[in-house]
Structure formats: structure tokens, C-alpha cells
């Protein structure tokens, strides 16, 4: 099968069945997280009538929309065996840039939006260049960038929340009605982003290269994959996604908030890990991350509905994270 000429030999076994849905779910290790999500939903449905309603689910999605979107970028980076501590801070900076430019500097809203996205992308790009060119460990680079973005956010915003945001920047907070449920456009954007990245990771060569770089960078390099370019691309793409998360955040709250996203870096890692993606890189799926984000959202929402104090939500999330990482470790050891 050397590139052009077809080999004369016969021998191709007639049909190779594509992997079944079950195999795919198992191989992506999304089965466990999915089961956990279903169990959580079943539990809360039994405990309260208010849980299993269209309105409540729409609310859950709105509640996880920002962290979920950040977690998309986080998934990309963790798949390459990296980690991003700076995503919440980049998002906050981006949201302050877009709102402040529009409100205080008289920049047309669309241009302000684009500049906000560009700032987030530039921070992601800077992360990627530092990780590949110097090179530095992702943990340290993004820790530094967390502080830089956080400080710039507070300096530029002068600690002021930006109000009176033009309608273009809050448009994703508007709703449409499906049946008797109000759904925000932002929820649709989030779900769309998840589907887009599921496609890119699962169905394109770029996705394969992301997995290969995280799985065995040396092998990836030797097969001719431009590993540094893949990494820089991943970090820059993640930055752009954080910019979109900033827009979603502005749309959800209606303001530019310099305090936004302070725990979102860790919350996004939580969603990624709960979704079955390995912190060692090369394994996991972005749809798993969606499930992971929903697990957090469902538990938070459900416990609230049945009147459990919010600190228990944090407690349960912590236990689940350790459980998820344990499962990852054990399954890795078994596959050796």
C-alpha cells in the first residue's frame, strides 16, 4: 500500500466492522461518567418533582455553560498532557476588555467583541509559545499567566464592574421558547461548541495529532507530526474558546465583572476529570467533559432543590473527582 501502487496481493479480509457504539463508548471511557450522570438524575428525580422538568434542565445548562465552555479548552490542553490554570482569569480579562471598550471607550460593540476574543486568543497563544519554544511546563506557564491576566483585569477595570453593556454583548442571554421551556441562545452556543470539538477531535487528522502528541510526543514527532505547531494551535484555540466563554459570561450576568471566573480554572479541570479524560494526556473525549460538567451542574442543582446546604455540593464534587482519577489510574495500570 505504498502510497500510489496498489499491492497485487489479495488477503484483505472482506469486511472490517467499524467499532460498535458500545465499543466506542467504552474506549472513550465515557460510559462511567454517563452512568454517574444518569444515576444522579434518577436520584434527584425520585427526591423532588421539580428536578425533572424542561425548565430546570435549561437552568442547569445555563449554570454550567461558562465553566463547560472553559472546560472545552481545558480538555484540549489536558489531552496534550498539559494543564491550564489561567483560563478563568483569561476569560475575566476578555470580558472586561469587551465590555469596557464598548461602554467606556465608545468602541462599536462588534469591534469590542472581536478585540475581546483576540485578547483571549493572544493569551492562549502566549501560553502555547512559552510551553513549546522555551520550553516550560504548562503548569508553571499557566500559573504565571493566571496572575498576569488577573492583575491586568483589575488594573484595567479599576476594580469597577462594567454596567450598561450594549445588547450585542448580552444577546446570548436572550431566550427562545421550545415547547414550554425557555432556552438561552448561549446554551445552544455551548452545546454547539461541544459538538464542533467532538467532531474535530474524533473525525479529523488534527484531532488524531492532538491525541498522539499527548500520548507519545516522541512517536508523534517521528511520524512527522509537527508537534510544536499542534501544541501552539491547541493553546491558541483554547484561548479563543475562553473568549467565547467570556461572551457567555457577560451575556449571563449582563455586566463585565472583574471578579468573574476566579475558581473556574479548577472547576473546568473538575469537569474534564469527571468526564473521564486522563490527566496524563492522550485519552478522553470532549463529550465526556460535557457529561462531567453536567454531573457537577446536576448535583449542585439537585442538592439545592432538596434543600441541602451548598457546602455539601462542594464536598460531593471533591469526592467524585478523586474517585474519577482513581478509576483512571486503575484502568491505566490494568492496560499495561
Amino acid at each position: 500500500m505504498a502510497t500510489t501502487t496498489a499491492p497485487p496481493e489479495p488477503a484483505a479480509p472482506a469486511d472490517i466492522p467499524p467499532p460498535s457504539l458500545r465499543q466506542r463508548l467504552l474506549s472513550g471511557s465515557t460510559l462511567g461518567p454517563l452512568a454517574a450522570l444518569i444515576i444522579a438524575c434518577a436520584f434527584f428525580s425520585l427526591r423532588t418533582d421539580r428536578f425533572l422538568t424542561g425548565g430546570n434542565f435549561s437552568l442547569i445548562i445555563q449554570q454550567v455553560m461558562v465553566v463547560g465552555t472553559l472546560a472545552i479548552g481545558q480538555t484540549l490542553i489536558i489531552l496534550t498532557a498539559g494543564i491550564d490554570l489561567s483560563n478563568g482569569a483569561i476569560m475575566a480579562l476578555s470580558s472586561i476588555v469587551m465590555t469596557r471598550l464598548a461602554v467606556h471607550s465608545g468602541v462599536p460593540p462588534l469591534l469590542a467583541l472581536l478585540i475581546g476574543l483576540a485578547v483571549a486568543t493572544a493569551f492562549g497563544l502566549a501560553n502555547g509559545l512559552l510551553v513549546t519554544r522555551v520550553p516550560l511546563p504548562p503548569f508553571i506557564v499557566t500559573l504565571g499567566m493566571l496572575n498576569i491576566a488577573f492583575a491586568l483585569t483589575h488594573i484595567y477595570s479599576q476594580e469597577q464592574t462594567v454596567t450598561g453593556v450594549p445588547s450585542l454583548l448580552t444577546a446570548l442571554g436572550n431566550t427562545f421558547t421550545l415547547g414550554d421551556t425557555d432556552i438561552t441562545y448561549g446554551s445552544i452556543v455551548t452545546i454547539g461548541l461541544f459538538l464542533l470539538f467532538a467532531y474535530l477531535l474524533g473525525q479529523t487528522a488534527w484531532g488524531r495529532h492532538v491525541y498522539a502528541v499527548g500520548n507519545n510526543p516522541e512517536a508523534a514527532r517521528l511520524t512527522g507530526i509537527p508537534t510544536n505547531r499542534v501544541l501552539v494551535g491547541v493553546y491558541a484555540t483554547a484561548g479563543l474558546v475562553y473568549g467565547i466563554a467570556a461572551l457567555l459570561s457577560v451575556a449571563r450576568t449582563g455586566v463585565g465583572d472583574p471578579q468573574a471566573g476566579q475558581t473556574d480554572n479548577l472547576d473546568s479541570i473538575t469537569a474534564v476529570v469527571l468526564g473521564g479524560t486522563s490527566l496524563f494526556g492522550g485519552r478522553g473525549t470532549v463529550l465526556g467533559t460535557l457529561i462531567g460538567a453536567l454531573i457537577v451542574g446536576v448535583i449542585r442543582n439537585g442538592l439545592q432543590l432538596i434543600g441541602v446546604a451548598s457546602i455539601y455540593q462542594t464536598l460531593i464534587t471533591g469526592i467524585l473527582v478523586i474517585l474519577a482519577v482513581t478509576i483512571d489510574q486503575v484502568s491505566r495500570r490494568r492496560s499495561r
Binding site: 488524531r208 495529532h209 498522539a212 500520548n215 507519545n216 508523534a220 507530526i225 492522550g282
Partner: peptide, 14 residues
């Protein structure tokens, strides 16, 4: 090879 990828993916890697 990239251990987490399947055989066909490894054959066509890059």
C-alpha cells in the same frame, strides 16, 4: 507508537 490509539490510527499517524 501511540499506545492509546488503535492500530489503524497508528499505521496512518501523520
Amino acid at each position: 507508537v501511540a499506545p492509546a490509539l488503535d492500530i489503524a490510527s497508528n499505521l496512518f499517524l501523520g
